[in-house]
Nucleic acid binder design. Structure first.
Lengths: 262, 262
DNA sequence: ACCTGAACACCGTTCAAGT
DNA sequence: ACCTGAACACCGTTCAAGT
């Protein structure tokens, strides 16, 4: 909550602190991270039903009042988890932008990043789904909702740049009604949708597909082929691209996932 | 809960009741619908924070114990809302199957049905999102989770039949790794994702797109073009199809939506 | 200025007693 | 066989008193 707002009285002129935070402010920021990690642990151990303000208080060395200085409500904690999650995910997205390849391969690299993060942090990815439900959005603090939107804007802007670059170099042509907004939104929708639906333990064949590591790739390729984003999947082996992204950008993450059998 | 299981002692041989329910069982089933409508009203009036077992009890003429005879937990109520919702939506899907047109137009008709339902029943559509979150799935009764999965299977089977029909008549060609499962899953993902993301009040341009009534159409067309599902959007005016579906199948619903300005 | 924890109102769930 | 509502344990949130 107010832990991050930089009041004049608190700001040290010419202080050596990074980001212009006083020691006190830094301590509060650190404590917030500590609380978020504790909340994450509670969910990981026993599910979302185990995430309780009482239990979070008990697991921490602080009092109820202090918890409520950080989070305006229980739902605010979930949104904080979501923001924490998106920050980590952004690092993977940033890395995927550095992939050496054509523009379409770079889009695929973003999908790889999204998928790998979902596998690495299932609990936090799940928060991203809950954060799009009114149950969370109604009760979370407006400040945090704004913070999440802002973070999402940064990721969107990156994807936007990529589609514009593709349009400039001729890999992609915009058509009436289909600008970079529409393309980014479509990609986000299908990535979000696949991820959310796969959380459901349904036994339907059509969802068991998600076991297939290339389902997300197939879905993305359908979209990108439909947009005529070159090279088309008939002219290029994007499975090879997918594997190359995993090896060249996320080898550590993939090794970790394999070591825990996910 | 047990209201629907047909115990031997309760079953009347040769009774005239539809579906083989005794009067008692019918009364219980009716009461369940009554309770679901009350729950829906609570959410519509004040948001999901207003949905409380206490308030549901108070709004009904029954006691706490009776409420818990119907629903194993609060989350079970939400899943019941979701099931109720999918049943209504299935009626629209069934209607969309009767659209006179080529196979791809019939897919579009399903997307129209999905979109119209989301606009008509925003609260119930939202339940479908929440029902894919572990917060609900963890605590809802296994029976109801199974019931939802079963209902989803029926809708999936319909979509599956449609893609198989398209493959048989040559409108569509399956390729390696992309069978009817993959195609149904991709369409569901993008419809679910668009819907969920649009709930978020984000100010990003890319989400404000959903104001454009044809965004869902564009997204579907990207997928279907990518699959080579004929006729391609370059050879056919699917906006016209969209409008025709609205007029020929859902004119009543569209008129209602316009009358309330949505 | 921040932290504490007792206190409060409400909520989810159960179950012995009633019909 | 089903319904009732009092009772209980726990939860979310607040705030006067403390440092």
């Amino acid at each position: 909550m107010f832990g991050f707002t930089c009041k004049k009285s608190d700001r040290k002129e010419n202080s050596g602190c990074s980001f212009g935070l006083t020691k006190k402010q830094q301590a509060i920021a650190d404590r917030e991270v500590e609380l978020i990690m504790l909340a994450k642990g509670l969910v990981q151990e026993q599910g979302f039903g185990n995430l309780t303000m009482d239990k979070l208080t008990a697991a921490s060395p602080y009092s109820k009042g202090t918890i409520y200085n950080h989070f305006s409500s229980k739902e605010d904690v979930i949104l904080a988890l979501c923001i924490h999650s998106l920050k980590s995910e952004s690092i993977l997205f940033a890395r995927s932008g550095q992939f050496e390849g054509n523009t379409r391969e770079k889009v695929i690299a973003m999908h790889v990043a999204y998928r790998i993060y979902a596998r690495m942090e299932p609990v936090l990815s799940t928060c991203a789904i809950m954060a799009k439900s009114p149950w969370v959005l109604e009760k979370a603090s407006p400040e945090r909702v704004a913070e999440l939107n802002q973070l999402e804007e940064v990721v969107i802007a990156g994807a936007d740049d990529l589609t514009n670059a593709a349009a400039e170099c001729g890999d992609l042509k915009f058509s009436s009604g289909i600008g970079s907004d529409a393309i980014v939104f479509a990609n986000w929708s299908i990535a979000f949708g696949s991820n959310a639906l796969s959380q459901n333990a349904s036994n339907s064949h059509c969802i068991q597909r998600l076991q297939d590591p290339f389902t997300v790739l197939h879905n993305a390729n359908m979209l990108l082929d439909g947009l005529g984003w070159k090279p088309l999947s008939s002219e290029w082996d994007y499975r090879k691209t997918w594997r190359r992204v995993e090896q060249e950008l996320f080898s550590e993450e993939v090794a970790y996932l394999e070591s825990i059998g996910r």
